[in-house]
């Protein structure tokens, strides 16, 4: 369990590119600045894609963990 408190959670398991990114963007838009979104995905490509998306948009991936092919991202809205 992570110590980071998430204001919202998004399940992208089973989804493939570009859906995890598109859904993450929507979910982040619904948050306030500084709030954290917890997103889980099974798409292995989402690891690099989340990093690139965060780089461009200025949102921050504060934590990324992997457990048996499931990736969990904590993303703080800028």
């Amino acid at each position: 369990m992570s110590a980071i408190a998430a204001a919202a959670e998004l399940d992208c398991k089973g989804l493939n590119c570009p859906l995890p990114i598109l859904k993450t963007k929507k979910a982040i838009d619904a948050l306030q600045s500084g709030e954290v979104l917890k997103m889980t995905a099974t798409d292995p490509g989402s690891v690099n894609d989340m990093a690139s998306w965060a780089n461009r948009t200025g949102n921050e991936v504060v934590e990324h963990t992997e457990d048996g092919g499931a990736h969990t991202f904590f993303i703080r809205k800028k």
Binding site: P18, I21, L22, T24, K25, S52, R56, T57
Partner: peptide, 12 residues
Amino acid sequence: FILASTAAAMDM
């Protein structure tokens, strides 16, 4: 459609 939707999600 993949590239355009992703670009929009990346604030482009």
